[in-house]
Each structure stands twice: as structure tokens, then as C-alpha cells.
Design a protein around this nucleic acid. Structure first.
Lengths: 213, 213
DNA sequence: TCAATAGTGTCTGTTAGACATTATGGA
DNA sequence: TCCATAATGTCTAACAGACACTATTGA
């Protein structure tokens, strides 16, 4: 008898201006792995929260279901399911003893199913980023507009136009200034902002045929 | 011992210009239910295909994972998982013996978990419709542009502008005319088109802050 | 003073939506 | 003939992207 489901978490954070995922350190002669836990006892969000807390010392700021992966054909009768969850913690969150942050661009060798889980999770982050405030959850509560733009560029995988980005942000009434400024090396200090959505004006989505095809 | 996972299918089609889902007829004194099947033996897509074939006589034209629902707290140790899948069949597909199409706006009473599954599935349809050709999979292979527009309006839940819709469609090179025309009651006959995507030009997605907030 | 970064104002090409008009069938 | 629907052309307001400029700090 097999058939217990597994909850697997892809914890995401920005480290050195790159997207990174939380991994358990490899034991002697094995590979690093995503944090996981047998399903049961508590709810799925509860499992995710405890796994992220174990690996980073703090609760996730956002989480979402990413998909389901079926354990290979090894168990022909009653193949076990793995539920893949994606979660975020703010930039600057350290990894705790026995864990580390690995940039997604240079992941260490993982079990094939876990690599697929990471891909699923990143795709989910990108899918949800304009429906939910994913970018804001990857930043500390106070952030500069340049940091926010860099986060969007990281998730979208392309550069954005500074003036247009700020115009759109202003029009959406999503942030408000704290009044504090932060000096970062050379240039003029940047103002700090908070995520403070005002109103959801007609959330009318245009038809985007360019994305199909 | 509990803990076998269940695959539940929300089969979607357009019936009478409304979105409808495939249900199993209620047995004496019970409620109608979504088609489902214990996980095991075959792959998840295989299970979905056989369930849709059983209910509509044909294979689904599209399917996607919609989410996972945990069976209520009834089983504190090892609560069972339900994997919700969403699938489409073309407009005009009948329901087979023991099944029927129920418009989503006026669903009969379902188990609470199944109502949640339907909501998840519809949300998934709407999420994916501009990344994948969901609208085309809900139509027969040859369709009129008015039918296509009505399908988009159904999925988006709002009216679209005819001229703009056709302009965008033309610009995306997604369809090509068959040369046939179909007369539908009174007015001028409409030309029939096929889904024939040409090229995927820079699939650059704009930043849409309006959707957040 | 120069270099580097933050933040803003203006212009222009593109495009979504509104409106009007023509085309072509059935009643 | 009238009416209903298909299909297309033109106008306009909104907006994304480009560019240039000012502002404010550290070296």
C-alpha cells in the first residue's frame, strides 16, 4: 500500500537581484531537495506555513497552489500524488540552519520531479502577478519604486520603461509614499513607498490575442 | 484507512449561448454530481478523457488542471484529496444517457465541495483563455466570427466591441476563412473561419496594474 | 566639479472604442 | 420593399514608449 499524498513547497525570494528558491541542504551523498511533508493532520496552507517557517524563520507573505505531479509509473496501482505549492517571503529573509537559497538560474541537481515542481511554481508566480500583488509580497513592506520595477522585470523576464511604469503605478493608486528616503550609494536618495491599494476601478481586461497563436 | 485521491472533472460546453457543465443525473433522492473517478491505474489526463467520453460520447478538445480540494475535516488523519480538472467539448456535443448539461448560472444543488470545484474550473477557464485557445476549443472547427466573439463575451462576462474584436483578431493572424458561408435566419450570411494560428510574434505582456488593487 | 541615480514633462505612434456606412441575405 | 445581420472605413481619446530634462546626493 502506498498512496499518501505529499505537499511540496517552492519558497521564493529575491536574493542579489535574482529569483531564488528555498532548498534543504543535501545530506552526505544525496541531492538538495525542496521542503516537503506528508499530507495529513493539518490543512495544506498550514503545512506550507510550517515548512516555510522551518526553512526561513518566518511565515510566508503569499502562497498559491501551483499544480499536481503524479509520482512516476513506479506504483502502477495507486500512484501517489504530490501537491506543489508556491510561496513567497520578503527580500532579505535569511535561510535557517539546514537550508539555503538557490538562484533559479543556477539550481543544483534535484530529483527530476522537483525540477518540474520549480518550473510549475515559477510559471504560477508569473501567471498570478497581475491578478495578485505577488511583486509586493517579494519586497519588504517599505520599498523604493526602483526595487518594485526591478521585481516586475525579474518576474516578467524583460526590461520595463521607467516613466511608463511609474505612470501606470500612479494611475492604479496602488502605493503611497511613507515620507522617508533611502540613500543607496551614489545618486539621489529614493523615496520609500508602501503597498496601499485604493480602489479597484473597472477591472476590465482587454482581449489579448497576441498571447495566443 | 482512507486516503485514496479522487479525480473530478468539470466538463464545459456552450449550450444555448450559455456556459454549461456536464453532470451525472441524480439517482433517486440524491443530488446530481460531477463525474469522478478514483485516482490510480491510468494517468490523470487518461482519467479525464474517459470520464468526458462517458458523459458526452467524445474526447475533450482541451483540458487543464484547476486545483486541489481537501475533503472536509471528516478524516483528521489522512484527509483525502480531490484533484479538480477542467475540460472542454465543442458546442453542439450532446450529453449521453445518464448525463446532462446544466447551465452554470442555474446549477442544481450539488455537494458543497463540487460547487467549489465548478467555481475553480470556471476561474481556470477565464485565467487560461488568453494564454491558450480555450474559446476555439469550445467551438466546432468551423465557426463564424460572431460565434467566436460571443464565446469570448461569455468567458469574459462582458460585451466586446465588434470592429475592435475583428481588428485584433486579424492583427494576430489566428484564423483563416474557409470560403464557405452560413445563412442564419434573416440577415447577411456569415463567413466560416478555422483556427489557424500563423506565428507568435513577440508575446510581450504589458504590466496591468488595474487588475491588482 | 563630475558621476550616478531619482523623478518628471513633453512628444509621437499605436490602438481601443465609438460611430457611420455599405453589403447581402430573408420575410 | 423593409429589416436584420455581416463587414468595413473613419475619427478620436487614451496610452505606451522614447527622449530630454531637472533634482539631489556621494566622490
Amino acid at each position: 500500500m502506498t498512496s499518501g499524498a505529499v505537499i511540496e513547497v517552492v519558497g521564493c525570494a529575491i536574493v542579489d537581484r535574482h529569483l531564488a528558491v528555498l532548498l534543504r541542504d543535501p545530506a552526505r551523498g544525496t541531492r538538495a531537495s525542496l521542503p516537503w511533508k506528508a499530507h495529513g493532520g493539518t490543512s495544506i496552507p498550514g503545512s506550507v506555513a510550517s515548512l516555510v517557517r522551518a526553512g526561513s524563520g518566518r511565515a510566508p507573505t503569499w502562497m498559491s497552489h501551483a499544480g499536481v505531479v503524479v509520482e512516476g509509473a513506479e506504483h502502477p496501482s495507486g500512484a501517489a500524488l504530490t501537491v506543489v505549492m508556491v510561496a513567497t517571503v520578503p527580500m532579505g529573509t535569511p535561510a535557517t540552519e539546514g537550508h539555503h537559497w538557490a538562484p533559479v538560474a543556477t539550481l543544483p541537481p534535484l530529483a527530476p520531479r522537483q525540477s518540474a515542481a520549480v518550473d510549475l511554481a515559477i510559471a504560477t508566480l508569473r501567471d498570478r502577478m497581475d491578478l495578485e500583488p505577488v511583486a509586493f509580497r517579494l519586497l519588504p513592506s517599505a520599498f523604493t519604486l526602483t526595487e518594485l520595477q526591478q521585481t516586475y522585470e525579474l518576474l516578467l523576464g524583460r526590461r520595463l520603461h521607467k516613466a511608463s511604469f511609474r505612470r501606470a503605478l500612479l494611475a492604479a493608486s496602488l502605493v503611497e509614499p511613507t515620507g522617508d528616503w533611502r540613500s543607496e550609494g551614489r545618486g539621489r536618495p529614493a523615496q520609500l513607498f508602501l503597498y496601499a491599494p485604493r480602489r479597484r476601478r473597472g477591472a476590465r481586461r482587454p482581449v489579448r490575442f497576441e498571447l495566443l497563436g
